[in-house]
Design a protein around this nucleic acid. Structure first.
Lengths: 251, 251
DNA sequence: GAGTGTGTTTCCTGTTACTGAACAGATTTT
DNA sequence: AAAATCTGTTCAGTAACAGGAAACACACTC
Protein backbone atom coordinates (compact mmCIF):
# COMPACT_ATOMS: atom_id res chain seq x y z
CA UNK A 1 0.00 0.00 0.00
CA UNK A 2 1.55 3.23 -1.09
CA UNK A 3 0.83 6.68 0.21
CA UNK A 4 -2.11 7.21 -2.09
CA UNK A 5 -4.05 4.00 -2.65
CA UNK A 6 -5.50 5.31 -5.90
CA UNK A 7 -2.49 6.85 -7.54
CA UNK A 8 -4.14 8.36 -10.57
CA UNK A 9 -6.42 10.45 -8.38
CA UNK A 10 -3.34 11.97 -6.90
CA UNK A 11 -2.21 13.01 -10.36
CA UNK A 12 -5.62 14.50 -10.98
CA UNK A 13 -5.31 16.45 -7.76
CA UNK A 14 -1.94 17.77 -8.88
CA UNK A 15 -3.45 18.90 -12.15
CA UNK A 16 -6.25 20.67 -10.31
CA UNK A 17 -3.74 22.25 -7.97
CA UNK A 18 -1.71 23.53 -10.90
CA UNK A 19 -4.81 24.98 -12.51
CA UNK A 20 -5.64 26.60 -9.21
CA UNK A 21 -2.31 28.39 -9.22
CA UNK A 22 -2.10 29.21 -12.90
CA UNK A 23 -5.77 30.06 -13.30
CA UNK A 24 -5.49 28.88 -16.89
CA UNK A 25 -3.06 26.60 -18.62
CA UNK A 26 -2.34 24.46 -21.66
CA UNK A 27 -1.48 20.79 -21.84
CA UNK A 28 2.26 21.05 -22.42
CA UNK A 29 2.55 23.75 -19.84
CA UNK A 30 1.03 21.49 -17.21
CA UNK A 31 2.97 18.47 -18.42
CA UNK A 32 6.23 20.33 -17.93
CA UNK A 33 5.25 21.73 -14.59
CA UNK A 34 4.15 18.39 -13.20
CA UNK A 35 6.71 16.18 -14.91
CA UNK A 36 4.02 14.05 -16.50
CA UNK A 37 3.59 13.13 -20.12
CA UNK A 38 1.43 15.32 -22.29
CA UNK A 39 -0.85 12.38 -23.03
CA UNK A 40 -1.48 11.76 -19.38
CA UNK A 41 -2.24 15.38 -18.63
CA UNK A 42 -4.57 15.38 -21.57
CA UNK A 43 -6.36 12.32 -20.26
CA UNK A 44 -6.85 13.84 -16.85
CA UNK A 45 -8.05 17.12 -18.26
CA UNK A 46 -10.64 15.57 -20.54
CA UNK A 47 -11.81 13.38 -17.68
CA UNK A 48 -12.19 16.42 -15.48
CA UNK A 49 -14.00 18.26 -18.20
CA UNK A 50 -16.40 15.37 -18.75
CA UNK A 51 -17.05 15.47 -15.03
CA UNK A 52 -17.98 19.15 -15.33
CA UNK A 53 -15.19 20.31 -13.09
CA UNK A 54 -12.90 21.82 -15.68
CA UNK A 55 -13.71 24.13 -18.56
CA UNK A 56 -11.79 24.09 -21.82
CA UNK A 57 -11.69 26.89 -24.31
CA UNK A 58 -9.53 26.90 -27.42
CA UNK A 59 -6.97 24.54 -26.01
CA UNK A 60 -6.71 26.36 -22.71
CA UNK A 61 -8.04 24.77 -19.57
CA UNK A 62 -9.26 26.28 -16.33
CA UNK A 63 -11.18 25.23 -13.26
CA UNK A 64 -14.93 25.71 -13.37
CA UNK A 65 -17.31 26.81 -10.66
CA UNK A 66 -18.48 23.35 -9.68
CA UNK A 67 -16.06 23.52 -6.80
CA UNK A 68 -17.93 26.53 -5.51
CA UNK A 69 -21.19 24.65 -5.79
CA UNK A 70 -19.88 21.68 -3.84
CA UNK A 71 -18.07 23.85 -1.32
CA UNK A 72 -21.05 26.02 -0.48
CA UNK A 73 -23.14 22.88 -0.25
CA UNK A 74 -20.77 21.37 2.27
CA UNK A 75 -20.69 24.58 4.24
CA UNK A 76 -24.45 25.04 4.28
CA UNK A 77 -24.86 21.43 5.30
CA UNK A 78 -22.99 21.96 8.56
CA UNK A 79 -25.42 22.36 11.42
CA UNK A 80 -22.87 24.53 13.19
CA UNK A 81 -23.05 26.94 10.30
CA UNK A 82 -26.80 27.00 10.24
CA UNK A 83 -26.89 27.93 13.90
CA UNK A 84 -23.89 30.22 14.07
CA UNK A 85 -24.64 32.19 10.94
CA UNK A 86 -27.07 34.69 12.48
CA UNK A 87 -24.63 35.34 15.32
CA UNK A 88 -21.79 35.96 12.88
CA UNK A 89 -23.97 38.45 11.07
CA UNK A 90 -25.15 40.05 14.29
CA UNK A 91 -21.61 40.42 15.56
CA UNK A 92 -20.57 42.12 12.36
CA UNK A 93 -23.39 44.58 12.74
CA UNK A 94 -22.89 45.33 16.42
CA UNK A 95 -19.11 45.47 16.35
CA UNK A 96 -18.70 47.13 12.99
CA UNK A 97 -15.77 44.81 12.33
CA UNK A 98 -15.23 41.74 10.24
CA UNK A 99 -16.44 38.55 11.87
CA UNK A 100 -16.16 34.89 11.06
CA UNK A 101 -17.06 31.36 11.98
CA UNK A 102 -13.91 29.29 12.06
CA UNK A 103 -13.83 25.51 11.90
CA UNK A 104 -10.83 23.24 12.35
CA UNK A 105 -10.00 20.90 9.50
CA UNK A 106 -6.85 18.92 8.83
CA UNK A 107 -4.97 20.98 11.40
CA UNK A 108 -5.90 24.28 9.85
CA UNK A 109 -8.30 27.04 10.75
CA UNK A 110 -10.91 27.35 8.02
CA UNK A 111 -13.11 30.40 7.61
CA UNK A 112 -16.48 28.75 7.09
CA UNK A 113 -18.49 31.97 7.22
CA UNK A 114 -17.33 35.55 6.90
CA UNK A 115 -19.25 38.74 7.37
CA UNK A 116 -18.28 42.36 7.20
CA UNK A 117 -20.21 45.36 8.39
CA UNK A 118 -19.21 47.48 5.45
CA UNK A 119 -19.56 45.94 2.04
CA UNK A 120 -16.54 45.60 -0.22
CA UNK A 121 -14.30 44.81 2.71
CA UNK A 122 -12.91 41.51 1.58
CA UNK A 123 -9.78 41.01 3.55
CA UNK A 124 -10.51 37.54 4.81
CA UNK A 125 -11.65 35.23 2.09
CA UNK A 126 -14.42 32.76 2.68
CA UNK A 127 -12.96 29.28 2.69
CA UNK A 128 -9.40 30.43 3.23
CA UNK A 129 -7.18 28.63 5.69
CA UNK A 130 -4.74 29.79 8.32
CA UNK A 131 -2.32 28.05 10.68
CA UNK A 132 -3.83 27.25 14.06
CA UNK A 133 -1.05 28.77 16.13
CA UNK A 134 -1.16 32.19 14.48
CA UNK A 135 -4.80 33.18 14.83
CA UNK A 136 -7.11 33.77 17.76
CA UNK A 137 -9.61 31.24 16.49
CA UNK A 138 -6.87 28.71 15.83
CA UNK A 139 -5.51 29.09 19.33
CA UNK A 140 -8.97 28.39 20.67
CA UNK A 141 -8.99 25.17 18.66
CA UNK A 142 -5.60 24.11 20.00
CA UNK A 143 -6.40 25.13 23.56
CA UNK A 144 -9.21 22.61 23.81
CA UNK A 145 -7.07 19.75 22.64
CA UNK A 146 -5.04 17.44 24.83
CA UNK A 147 -1.43 18.30 25.44
CA UNK A 148 -0.34 15.34 23.31
CA UNK A 149 -2.51 16.50 20.43
CA UNK A 150 -0.88 19.93 20.63
CA UNK A 151 2.55 18.32 20.65
CA UNK A 152 1.55 16.33 17.62
CA UNK A 153 0.51 19.55 15.90
CA UNK A 154 3.85 21.18 16.65
CA UNK A 155 5.60 18.10 15.37
CA UNK A 156 3.78 17.66 12.10
CA UNK A 157 2.82 21.21 11.17
CA UNK A 158 5.49 23.20 12.97
CA UNK A 159 5.30 26.74 14.28
CA UNK A 160 6.18 28.68 11.19
CA UNK A 161 6.43 32.39 11.98
CA UNK A 162 4.05 34.41 9.83
CA UNK A 163 5.09 37.74 11.32
CA UNK A 164 7.67 38.62 13.96
CA UNK A 165 4.98 38.34 16.61
CA UNK A 166 3.94 34.79 15.73
CA UNK A 167 4.33 32.29 18.55
CA UNK A 168 7.15 30.13 17.32
CA UNK A 169 8.32 28.05 20.22
CA UNK A 170 6.73 25.25 22.10
CA UNK A 171 6.75 26.59 25.66
CA UNK A 172 5.41 29.97 24.65
CA UNK A 173 2.58 28.22 22.88
CA UNK A 174 1.70 26.12 25.90
CA UNK A 175 1.53 29.07 28.28
CA UNK A 176 -0.55 30.97 25.73
CA UNK A 177 -2.95 28.06 25.40
CA UNK A 178 -3.19 27.82 29.17
CA UNK A 179 -4.30 31.41 29.32
CA UNK A 180 -6.85 30.70 26.59
CA UNK A 181 -8.51 27.88 28.52
CA UNK A 182 -8.40 29.98 31.68
CA UNK A 183 -10.22 32.90 30.17
CA UNK A 184 -12.23 30.98 27.60
CA UNK A 185 -10.96 33.52 25.07
CA UNK A 186 -8.08 33.95 22.67
CA UNK A 187 -6.35 36.98 21.20
CA UNK A 188 -4.10 37.53 18.25
CA UNK A 189 -2.04 40.67 18.04
CA UNK A 190 -0.53 40.85 14.59
CA UNK A 191 0.58 37.24 14.67
CA UNK A 192 -0.71 36.35 11.23
CA UNK A 193 -0.73 39.72 9.49
CA UNK A 194 1.03 42.84 10.69
CA UNK A 195 -1.36 45.40 12.06
CA UNK A 196 -4.20 42.90 12.19
CA UNK A 197 -5.73 41.78 15.46
CA UNK A 198 -8.49 39.40 16.42
CA UNK A 199 -10.44 37.97 19.33
CA UNK A 200 -12.05 34.55 19.38
CA UNK A 201 -14.33 32.51 21.62
CA UNK A 202 -14.91 28.75 21.56
CA UNK A 203 -18.09 27.00 20.53
CA UNK A 204 -18.22 23.60 22.19
CA UNK A 205 -20.48 20.68 21.48
CA UNK A 206 -22.47 20.31 24.64
CA UNK A 207 -23.76 16.85 23.94
CA UNK A 208 -21.36 13.91 24.25
CA UNK A 209 -17.76 14.91 24.77
CA UNK A 210 -17.06 18.58 25.23
CA UNK A 211 -15.30 18.55 21.92
CA UNK A 212 -14.76 21.86 20.22
CA UNK A 213 -17.01 22.52 17.26
CA UNK A 214 -15.48 25.80 16.12
CA UNK A 215 -14.88 29.38 17.12
CA UNK A 216 -16.42 32.78 16.58
CA UNK A 217 -13.99 35.56 15.89
CA UNK A 218 -13.82 39.30 15.32
CA UNK A 219 -11.00 40.75 13.24
CA UNK A 220 -9.79 44.23 12.51
CA UNK A 221 -6.90 46.67 12.29
CA UNK A 222 -4.81 47.26 15.41
CA UNK A 223 -5.79 50.93 15.44
CA UNK A 224 -9.40 50.05 16.11
CA UNK A 225 -8.80 46.90 18.14
CA UNK A 226 -6.93 48.12 21.20
CA UNK A 227 -7.35 49.20 24.80
CA UNK A 228 -10.61 48.53 26.56
CA UNK A 229 -12.37 47.74 23.30
CA UNK A 230 -10.00 44.89 22.55
CA UNK A 231 -9.67 43.74 26.15
CA UNK A 232 -13.25 43.96 27.35
CA UNK A 233 -15.96 45.12 24.96
CA UNK A 234 -15.31 42.86 21.99
CA UNK A 235 -14.48 39.82 24.13
CA UNK A 236 -17.78 40.22 25.92
CA UNK A 237 -19.73 40.36 22.70
CA UNK A 238 -17.94 37.45 21.07
CA UNK A 239 -18.21 35.36 24.20
CA UNK A 240 -21.92 35.84 24.62
CA UNK A 241 -22.54 35.18 20.94
CA UNK A 242 -20.55 31.96 21.21
CA UNK A 243 -22.52 30.96 24.29
CA UNK A 244 -25.77 31.44 22.45
CA UNK A 245 -24.55 29.21 19.65
CA UNK A 246 -23.52 26.56 22.16
CA UNK A 247 -26.94 26.62 23.73
CA UNK A 248 -28.76 26.18 20.48
CA UNK A 249 -26.28 23.54 19.39
CA UNK A 250 -27.02 21.50 22.48
CA UNK A 251 -30.63 20.53 21.86
CA UNK B 1 -10.76 5.69 -25.80
CA UNK B 2 -13.64 5.30 -23.40
CA UNK B 3 -15.86 8.01 -22.04
CA UNK B 4 -13.58 8.81 -19.14
CA UNK B 5 -9.92 8.43 -20.10
CA UNK B 6 -8.90 8.04 -16.47
CA UNK B 7 -11.51 5.70 -15.15
CA UNK B 8 -10.56 5.68 -11.51
CA UNK B 9 -11.06 9.42 -11.29
CA UNK B 10 -14.59 8.85 -12.36
CA UNK B 11 -15.10 6.50 -9.45
CA UNK B 12 -13.64 9.11 -7.15
CA UNK B 13 -16.08 11.64 -8.53
CA UNK B 14 -18.94 9.26 -7.85
CA UNK B 15 -17.78 8.85 -4.28
CA UNK B 16 -17.61 12.61 -3.84
CA UNK B 17 -21.03 12.97 -5.38
CA UNK B 18 -22.48 10.43 -2.99
CA UNK B 19 -20.90 12.22 -0.04
CA UNK B 20 -22.36 15.44 -1.34
CA UNK B 21 -25.83 13.95 -1.21
CA UNK B 22 -25.49 11.98 1.99
CA UNK B 23 -23.49 14.62 3.83
CA UNK B 24 -21.87 11.80 5.78
CA UNK B 25 -21.48 8.12 5.05
CA UNK B 26 -19.67 4.93 5.91
CA UNK B 27 -17.70 2.65 3.62
CA UNK B 28 -20.24 -0.16 3.19
CA UNK B 29 -23.00 2.36 2.74
CA UNK B 30 -21.17 3.97 -0.17
CA UNK B 31 -20.10 0.61 -1.58
CA UNK B 32 -23.71 -0.52 -1.76
CA UNK B 33 -24.92 2.75 -3.20
CA UNK B 34 -22.27 2.86 -5.92
CA UNK B 35 -22.04 -0.86 -6.64
CA UNK B 36 -18.34 -0.91 -5.95
CA UNK B 37 -16.42 -3.15 -3.62
CA UNK B 38 -15.86 -1.98 -0.09
CA UNK B 39 -12.12 -2.16 -0.60
CA UNK B 40 -12.27 0.14 -3.57
CA UNK B 41 -14.42 2.69 -1.78
CA UNK B 42 -12.01 2.55 1.10
CA UNK B 43 -9.09 3.18 -1.18
CA UNK B 44 -10.74 6.19 -2.75
CA UNK B 45 -11.75 7.60 0.59
CA UNK B 46 -8.30 7.33 2.12
CA UNK B 47 -6.82 8.86 -1.00
CA UNK B 48 -9.24 11.75 -0.77
CA UNK B 49 -8.51 12.16 2.89
CA UNK B 50 -4.77 12.20 2.28
CA UNK B 51 -5.42 14.90 -0.29
CA UNK B 52 -7.19 16.96 2.35
CA UNK B 53 -10.51 16.90 0.56
CA UNK B 54 -12.37 14.47 2.77
CA UNK B 55 -12.58 14.32 6.55
CA UNK B 56 -12.94 11.07 8.43
CA UNK B 57 -14.21 10.74 11.94
CA UNK B 58 -14.84 7.44 13.70
CA UNK B 59 -15.37 5.51 10.52
CA UNK B 60 -17.70 8.08 9.05
CA UNK B 61 -16.59 10.14 6.10
CA UNK B 62 -17.69 13.55 4.88
CA UNK B 63 -16.53 16.21 2.46
CA UNK B 64 -14.28 18.89 3.86
CA UNK B 65 -14.18 22.59 3.14
CA UNK B 66 -11.30 22.48 0.69
CA UNK B 67 -13.88 22.61 -2.07
CA UNK B 68 -15.00 25.95 -0.74
CA UNK B 69 -11.44 27.19 -0.72
CA UNK B 70 -10.86 26.16 -4.32
CA UNK B 71 -14.27 27.37 -5.45
CA UNK B 72 -13.96 30.82 -3.97
CA UNK B 73 -10.48 31.02 -5.42
CA UNK B 74 -11.77 30.25 -8.89
CA UNK B 75 -14.56 32.74 -8.50
CA UNK B 76 -12.34 35.52 -7.19
CA UNK B 77 -9.90 34.85 -9.99
CA UNK B 78 -12.44 35.73 -12.65
CA UNK B 79 -11.88 39.26 -13.88
CA UNK B 80 -15.58 39.52 -14.65
CA UNK B 81 -16.29 38.95 -10.99
CA UNK B 82 -13.76 41.52 -9.86
CA UNK B 83 -15.36 44.15 -12.05
CA UNK B 84 -19.00 43.20 -11.66
CA UNK B 85 -18.96 42.69 -7.92
CA UNK B 86 -19.44 46.34 -6.92
CA UNK B 87 -22.34 46.63 -9.36
CA UNK B 88 -23.99 43.52 -7.95
CA UNK B 89 -23.70 45.00 -4.48
CA UNK B 90 -24.90 48.40 -5.62
CA UNK B 91 -27.90 46.91 -7.38
CA UNK B 92 -28.87 45.04 -4.23
CA UNK B 93 -28.73 48.24 -2.26
CA UNK B 94 -30.60 50.41 -4.73
CA UNK B 95 -33.25 47.85 -5.66
CA UNK B 96 -33.70 46.29 -2.25
CA UNK B 97 -33.93 42.92 -3.97
CA UNK B 98 -31.60 39.98 -4.35
CA UNK B 99 -29.08 40.40 -7.15
CA UNK B 100 -26.56 38.15 -8.79
CA UNK B 101 -23.82 37.79 -11.33
CA UNK B 102 -24.55 34.78 -13.49
CA UNK B 103 -21.99 33.01 -15.64
CA UNK B 104 -22.59 30.25 -18.17
CA UNK B 105 -20.76 27.00 -17.65
CA UNK B 106 -21.35 23.61 -19.18
CA UNK B 107 -24.75 24.74 -20.43
CA UNK B 108 -25.95 25.87 -17.05
CA UNK B 109 -26.44 29.24 -15.41
CA UNK B 110 -24.11 29.52 -12.43
CA UNK B 111 -24.59 32.10 -9.71
CA UNK B 112 -21.04 33.36 -9.34
CA UNK B 113 -21.91 36.19 -6.97
CA UNK B 114 -25.02 36.77 -4.95
CA UNK B 115 -26.04 39.73 -2.87
CA UNK B 116 -29.11 40.53 -0.84
CA UNK B 117 -30.16 43.86 0.56
CA UNK B 118 -31.45 42.36 3.78
CA UNK B 119 -29.20 39.90 5.54
CA UNK B 120 -30.37 36.37 6.18
CA UNK B 121 -32.21 36.25 2.89
CA UNK B 122 -30.57 33.21 1.39
CA UNK B 123 -32.91 32.02 -1.26
CA UNK B 124 -30.42 31.76 -4.08
CA UNK B 125 -27.31 29.92 -3.09
CA UNK B 126 -23.91 31.09 -4.21
CA UNK B 127 -22.54 28.59 -6.70
CA UNK B 128 -25.88 27.00 -7.42
CA UNK B 129 -26.87 26.14 -10.97
CA UNK B 130 -30.03 26.55 -12.94
CA UNK B 131 -31.15 25.54 -16.43
CA UNK B 132 -30.53 28.22 -19.04
CA UNK B 133 -34.03 28.21 -20.48
CA UNK B 134 -35.82 28.78 -17.17
CA UNK B 135 -34.13 31.91 -15.83
CA UNK B 136 -33.82 35.47 -17.05
CA UNK B 137 -30.04 35.33 -16.88
CA UNK B 138 -29.98 31.99 -18.65
CA UNK B 139 -32.16 33.30 -21.45
CA UNK B 140 -29.71 36.14 -21.91
CA UNK B 141 -26.95 33.58 -22.29
CA UNK B 142 -28.89 31.61 -24.88
CA UNK B 143 -30.03 34.70 -26.74
CA UNK B 144 -26.50 35.69 -27.63
CA UNK B 145 -25.67 32.30 -29.03
CA UNK B 146 -26.07 31.21 -32.63
CA UNK B 147 -29.27 29.47 -33.59
CA UNK B 148 -27.39 26.21 -34.06
CA UNK B 149 -25.90 26.48 -30.59
CA UNK B 150 -29.39 26.96 -29.18
CA UNK B 151 -30.61 23.93 -31.11
CA UNK B 152 -27.72 21.97 -29.70
CA UNK B 153 -28.73 23.05 -26.21
CA UNK B 154 -32.30 21.92 -26.76
CA UNK B 155 -31.02 18.63 -28.12
CA UNK B 156 -28.56 17.75 -25.38
CA UNK B 157 -30.08 19.39 -22.32
CA UNK B 158 -33.75 19.50 -23.24
CA UNK B 159 -36.41 21.90 -22.08
CA UNK B 160 -37.43 20.32 -18.82
CA UNK B 161 -40.35 22.21 -17.30
CA UNK B 162 -39.53 23.44 -13.80
CA UNK B 163 -42.91 25.03 -13.25
CA UNK B 164 -46.00 25.21 -15.44
CA UNK B 165 -44.73 28.50 -16.84
CA UNK B 166 -41.38 27.17 -18.01
CA UNK B 167 -40.73 27.48 -21.71
CA UNK B 168 -40.82 23.92 -22.88
CA UNK B 169 -41.04 23.94 -26.63
CA UNK B 170 -38.59 24.93 -29.27
CA UNK B 171 -40.50 27.59 -31.15
CA UNK B 172 -41.63 29.38 -28.02
CA UNK B 173 -38.01 29.49 -26.92
CA UNK B 174 -36.87 30.99 -30.20
CA UNK B 175 -39.41 33.78 -30.18
CA UNK B 176 -38.59 34.50 -26.56
CA UNK B 177 -34.88 34.69 -27.35
CA UNK B 178 -35.62 36.98 -30.27
CA UNK B 179 -37.36 39.38 -27.94
CA UNK B 180 -34.39 39.19 -25.59
CA UNK B 181 -31.90 40.25 -28.22
CA UNK B 182 -34.29 42.96 -29.42
CA UNK B 183 -34.65 44.59 -26.03
CA UNK B 184 -31.25 43.58 -24.66
CA UNK B 185 -33.11 42.32 -21.63
CA UNK B 186 -34.66 39.12 -20.35
CA UNK B 187 -37.47 38.37 -17.94
CA UNK B 188 -38.53 35.32 -16.02
CA UNK B 189 -42.01 35.15 -14.57
CA UNK B 190 -42.16 32.16 -12.29
CA UNK B 191 -40.48 29.89 -14.82
CA UNK B 192 -38.02 28.34 -12.37
CA UNK B 193 -39.83 28.78 -9.05
CA UNK B 194 -43.46 29.63 -8.61
CA UNK B 195 -43.97 33.17 -7.43
CA UNK B 196 -40.39 34.12 -8.23
CA UNK B 197 -39.52 36.62 -10.92
CA UNK B 198 -36.31 38.05 -12.30
CA UNK B 199 -34.85 40.48 -14.80
CA UNK B 200 -31.45 40.13 -16.41
CA UNK B 201 -29.17 42.14 -18.67
CA UNK B 202 -26.21 40.87 -20.69
CA UNK B 203 -22.57 41.69 -20.07
CA UNK B 204 -20.63 41.30 -23.27
CA UNK B 205 -16.91 41.15 -23.84
CA UNK B 206 -16.18 44.24 -25.85
CA UNK B 207 -12.75 43.18 -27.01
CA UNK B 208 -12.46 40.54 -29.72
CA UNK B 209 -15.70 38.79 -30.48
CA UNK B 210 -18.83 40.18 -28.89
CA UNK B 211 -19.09 36.98 -26.89
CA UNK B 212 -21.24 37.04 -23.82
CA UNK B 213 -19.33 37.10 -20.55
CA UNK B 214 -22.27 36.77 -18.21
CA UNK B 215 -25.38 38.50 -16.97
CA UNK B 216 -26.51 40.70 -14.14
CA UNK B 217 -29.86 39.83 -12.65
CA UNK B 218 -32.34 40.98 -10.04
CA UNK B 219 -34.64 38.46 -8.39
CA UNK B 220 -37.62 38.69 -6.10
CA UNK B 221 -41.16 37.66 -5.30
CA UNK B 222 -43.86 38.32 -7.87
CA UNK B 223 -45.71 40.60 -5.44
CA UNK B 224 -42.85 43.07 -5.47
CA UNK B 225 -41.69 42.50 -9.04
CA UNK B 226 -44.65 43.56 -11.13
CA UNK B 227 -46.13 46.45 -13.08
CA UNK B 228 -43.98 49.44 -13.90
CA UNK B 229 -41.32 48.38 -11.43
CA UNK B 230 -40.77 45.08 -13.21
CA UNK B 231 -41.22 46.48 -16.71
CA UNK B 232 -39.30 49.73 -16.49
CA UNK B 233 -37.60 50.65 -13.22
CA UNK B 234 -35.65 47.49 -12.51
CA UNK B 235 -34.75 46.88 -16.17
CA UNK B 236 -33.31 50.36 -16.36
CA UNK B 237 -31.15 49.84 -13.30
CA UNK B 238 -29.94 46.40 -14.31
CA UNK B 239 -29.22 47.54 -17.81
CA UNK B 240 -27.13 50.54 -16.81
CA UNK B 241 -25.23 48.48 -14.25
CA UNK B 242 -24.46 45.89 -16.92
CA UNK B 243 -23.33 48.63 -19.30
CA UNK B 244 -20.92 49.96 -16.69
CA UNK B 245 -19.45 46.51 -16.26
CA UNK B 246 -19.05 46.15 -20.02
CA UNK B 247 -17.22 49.44 -20.20
CA UNK B 248 -14.75 48.57 -17.50
CA UNK B 249 -14.33 45.09 -18.94
CA UNK B 250 -13.28 46.53 -22.27
CA UNK B 251 -10.00 48.21 -21.34
C1' DG C 1 6.45 27.24 -47.22
C1' DA C 2 9.55 25.68 -43.88
C1' DG C 3 9.63 25.65 -39.07
C1' DT C 4 8.12 25.61 -34.40
C1' DG C 5 4.67 25.92 -31.51
C1' DT C 6 0.32 23.88 -29.87
C1' DG C 7 -3.32 20.09 -28.55
C1' DT C 8 -4.73 15.49 -29.85
C1' DT C 9 -4.47 10.62 -30.98
C1' DT C 10 -2.44 6.01 -31.18
C1' DC C 11 -0.28 2.01 -29.50
C1' DC C 12 1.87 -0.75 -26.31
C1' DT C 13 3.25 -2.45 -21.77
C1' DG C 14 4.14 -2.64 -16.91
C1' DT C 15 1.47 -0.97 -13.25
C1' DT C 16 -2.20 -0.83 -10.54
C1' DA C 17 -6.91 -0.30 -9.47
C1' DC C 18 -10.38 -3.26 -8.63
C1' DT C 19 -12.70 -7.64 -6.59
C1' DG C 20 -13.50 -11.31 -3.26
C1' DA C 21 -12.37 -12.90 0.86
C1' DA C 22 -10.35 -12.92 5.26
C1' DC C 23 -9.57 -10.03 9.47
C1' DA C 24 -10.49 -7.07 13.48
C1' DG C 25 -13.26 -4.13 16.32
C1' DA C 26 -17.48 -2.51 18.17
C1' DT C 27 -22.20 -2.90 19.06
C1' DT C 28 -26.35 -5.37 19.64
C1' DT C 29 -28.97 -9.63 20.43
C1' DT C 30 -30.01 -13.51 22.62
C1' DA D 1 -21.83 -13.07 28.75
C1' DA D 2 -21.26 -15.06 24.58
C1' DA D 3 -22.72 -15.17 20.03
C1' DA D 4 -24.20 -12.94 16.15
C1' DT D 5 -23.92 -9.13 13.19
C1' DC D 6 -22.74 -5.04 12.18
C1' DT D 7 -18.91 -2.01 11.08
C1' DG D 8 -14.04 -0.47 8.82
C1' DT D 9 -9.73 -2.32 7.36
C1' DT D 10 -6.25 -5.34 5.20
C1' DC D 11 -4.62 -8.83 1.93
C1' DA D 12 -3.60 -11.15 -2.40
C1' DG D 13 -4.29 -12.09 -7.35
C1' DT D 14 -5.58 -10.75 -11.80
C1' DA D 15 -7.60 -8.34 -15.46
C1' DA D 16 -7.88 -3.74 -16.80
C1' DC D 17 -5.90 0.37 -17.77
C1' DA D 18 -3.08 4.54 -16.80
C1' DG D 19 1.02 6.46 -18.45
C1' DG D 20 4.97 7.13 -21.76
C1' DA D 21 6.86 7.76 -26.39
C1' DA D 22 6.06 8.96 -30.74
C1' DA D 23 3.38 10.09 -34.61
C1' DC D 24 -0.31 13.23 -36.04
C1' DA D 25 -2.94 17.47 -37.06
C1' DC D 26 -3.38 22.05 -36.82
C1' DA D 27 -2.20 26.84 -36.08
C1' DC D 28 0.74 30.19 -35.99
C1' DT D 29 5.27 32.69 -37.13
C1' DC D 30 9.20 33.98 -39.77
Amino acid sequence: MTEYPVGSVRTTARVVRALEDNREAGVTELADELNVSKASVHNHLTTLERLGVVVSDAGRYRLGLRFLDIGIGVRDGMELHRIARPEVDGLAQSTGEATALVVPEHNEAVYAAVETSSRNDRRIRLGSRAPLHATAAGKVVLAYRSREAVEEYVETVGLDPETDRTISNRSELHTELRSVTDRGLAFDRGELFDGMRSVAAPVRRGDDTDALAGALTVLGPAERLSGKRLEEDLPGMVLSAAKRVELELAD
